[in-house]
Write a protein that binds this DNA or RNA. Sequence first.
DNA 1: TTCCTATGTCATCCAATTGTGATGATCTGA
DNA 2: TCAGATCATCACAATTGGATGACATAGGAA
Lengths: 235, 235
Amino acid sequence: MTTSPRILIVEDEEPLSLLLRYNLESEGYAVESAMRGDDAELMLKEHIPDLVLLDWMLPGLSGIELCRRLRQRSDTKNLPIILLTARGEEDERVRGLATGADDYVVKPFSVPELLARVGALLRRVSPNRVASSLEAGDLHLDRSSHRVRRGGRELHLGPTEFRLLEFLMERPGRVFSRAQLLDHVWSMDSEIDERTVDVHVGRLRKAINKPRERDPVRTIRGAGYSFDENFGRKA
Amino acid sequence: MTTSPRILIVEDEEPLSLLLRYNLESEGYAVESAMRGDDAELMLKEHIPDLVLLDWMLPGLSGIELCRRLRQRSDTKNLPIILLTARGEEDERVRGLATGADDYVVKPFSVPELLARVGALLRRVSPNRVASSLEAGDLHLDRSSHRVRRGGRELHLGPTEFRLLEFLMERPGRVFSRAQLLDHVWSMDSEIDERTVDVHVGRLRKAINKPRERDPVRTIRGAGYSFDENFGRKA
DNA sequence: TTCCTATGTCATCCAATTGTGATGATCTGA
DNA sequence: TCAGATCATCACAATTGGATGACATAGGAA
């Protein structure tokens, strides 16, 4: 599952961090973690996850400060953040939310509750990232069963084509350069020729389109590819 | 399944307690826990769960003593109790069962085994809460008698193949990676080669499929295996 | 002990998948 | 309309991943 939602844990108490990692991973999330606020900030310069679990008190750079900074960067302005606050700091919650966190949880918290909040927030912010199935027009992609259907018929996609379609359908309308697609759909740091993306897009098209069906994959010359957000509407 | 069965864990080793909680919760149970025998007794005055996992050696009030007391209270006389005993205390099992426990498990135990016992005991006590048999098409798996039939004929599966089929049939359609299967069907932390899963899937297939019968086990290249949710429908 | 079953590993075979280079089609702007 | 830039496809060789049969071992049953 290359496209599972990524969560960054920023927490200096290692046992808690591990507990969170363990539980989140078994929920199917891809987890990264940092023990210090400043480390986290560096990681966020490299790569932006889908959600951040942020401890309030941190060495290096406090959670609240990091939160504030993230809200100022344009690329993390809307990044979902859940603050972890210790009991007794509850009064700070107002300050926390004012600083821009989307939610907060008071330690010690129950794991299921945290998981529920994480799920709720992700669903609110990017429903497609967590939906168990994606649909557009007569195209239907089911993640849990790894099936893709168009109309009634079941389609057979190779692993790469599946991930590619999944990625594009999660973000209909948005255009991705070949480099971006290589980063997200292939593994990071892939040394693959950009032209290879063309080939896979071609394979994907061949797999999902019958002779005279409409093609939901749009080529934007000079820019990249996208999933047609109007696919399924109008004629 | 109306509401999820509640399970009380009484165990002073925190890591083990968390492990149990985690696994039970992901099986859909509602979990409460206590670290001391006397705490547990207090909790049991407040609210009676559907089943208790009780450590033999406990601070405050020993497991065996707690067990005995519970058997004397009219409202907990029939409360299902599974004792957790350490290796070397096995001889005590007789005393444990004599004291009124319904089952016991020797530490270190395999998680699937424990889950199986929990399920078995709950089924025995309140059969309606858990399905005792799984069916799909002409496949029929009976948990309590540990038998599997296809059409009329009885199939012979090894223990591992049985658990594997049971696990997959419980979640038809969902795809599981080899790592997930190792976690859930084997025991957690198993240091087993992922390829071993292939072998067992192969054995399972050989056991349940006659020469030209449809295979309900789906291989999803690059992702894992699943039980075909369409098995039994259409041609 | 001896036989038998269940398991985990390997080695090997086979088929699906994948990245690339070549080639032809299209589009863009001058 | 023409040249260069971009894409779409194809064929192909290499690689990967999955299926299968053989084997050694561990544990139980007899």
